[in-house]
Amino acid sequence: MHPIPHLESLALSAWPALNTELLDGWVLRFAQGYTKRANSVSPLYPGVLADEAKVDYVERRYAAHGQPAIFKLTDASTALDALLAGRGYTVVDPTSVRTASLDTPAIVADPLVTLTSTPDDAWVRGFIALNRLSTAHAQTAQRMLAGYACPTAFAAIRDADRLIACGYAVMLWDSVSLFDIVTAPEARRQGHGRRLVGTLLAWGREQGASQGLLQVVADNAPAVALYAALGFAEQYRYWYRRQPG
């Protein structure tokens, strides 16, 4: 398997949009504006034709949803990147895609972290609050989180009855993908992120995963350091091109 299309397909499947459209090797995703990953175009396969007519169509499709066209690009889509640059598309959020082997004793579950297979109401409320989601995005997030067909684990750390850190994992093929590892501002720098990640990776290993997979904004130095300490190494980067205006 080519590493970029394989890992990109896992990441797309682990972060499902509300609606998806396939266009000649491109995957158009729509989720009412909640996250760029779920509201962008992914050209999954190297060598797929990048032409102006397809970009024109994409722009019309996203305009119909009241959104700009956004493309999620990697080094496997250099021709499309150049075409979009020529149309004035700007680069947004370069992101590091990282994997780690789960065959290490350093990955252990923490008893302070609780896991559930589905997001209960208390977890969802905490998730919305910690990520500071708008009402509209909160509703979309709830729909997305409730739509998984594959195994999932939702992790939480609480102080009394208040959720102070959370995140979740999705099991697909040989990989456990991690998303939205977040800690309340007043509870940061206390090791909660490491506890969440270790527990979710340990859960994935129990499910049969051989590797962990995550995506982190490249200039997020604290998160990059945390993941590097747990053995996550960069495989490639992606970036977004956003339609001007």
Rank of each mutant, 00 (worst) to 15 (best):
M1T: 14
P5I: 01
H6C: 09
L7P: 04
L7G: 07
E8D: 13
A11P: 08
A11G: 09
A11I: 10
L18G: 06
E21A: 07
L23G: 06
G25I: 00
V27K: 03
A31L: 09
Q32S: 04
Y34E: 04
Y34K: 01
T35Q: 07
K36D: 05
A38Y: 01
A38R: 04
S40Y: 07
S42L: 05
L44K: 08
L44M: 14
P46H: 13
P46E: 02
G47N: 00
A50N: 00
A50Q: 00
D51E: 10
K54L: 15
E59A: 14
R60G: 12
R61D: 01
H65T: 00
G66P: 03
Q67S: 12
P68F: 14
K72N: 15
L73V: 06
T78R: 07
A79M: 00
A79V: 06
D81Y: 09
L83N: 04
L84K: 11
Y89K: 10
Y89G: 02
V91D: 06
V92W: 10
P94E: 14
T95I: 03
S96M: 00
T99A: 08
T99E: 03
T99L: 13
P111Q: 09
L112I: 00
P119E: 00
D121F: 09
V124T: 14
F127P: 04
I128Y: 01
A129Y: 10
R132V: 06
T135R: 13
A136T: 14
A138N: 12
T140K: 05
T140E: 04
T140I: 15
A141D: 10
R143E: 04
M144H: 01
L145G: 05
Y148Q: 09
A149E: 13
P151K: 08
P151H: 14
T152Q: 09
A155V: 02
A155H: 01
I157K: 02
A160C: 04
D161K: 00
L163W: 05
I164Y: 13
A165F: 11
G167I: 01
V170R: 10
L172I: 13
W173F: 13
S175F: 11
V176Q: 10
D180W: 07
I181N: 05
A184S: 06
P185Q: 01
P185I: 03
E186F: 01
Q190T: 01
H192R: 07
R194P: 09
L196H: 02
L196R: 03
L196K: 02
V197C: 08
V197S: 04
T199M: 07
L200W: 07
A202I: 06
G204N: 11
R205P: 12
S210C: 11
Q215R: 04
A221E: 15
A223G: 08
V224P: 03
A225V: 14
A229L: 12
G231T: 01
F232A: 03
A233Q: 15
E234I: 01
Y236R: 11
W239I: 07
W239D: 03
W239A: 10
R241M: 02
R242D: 03
R242T: 11
Q243C: 11
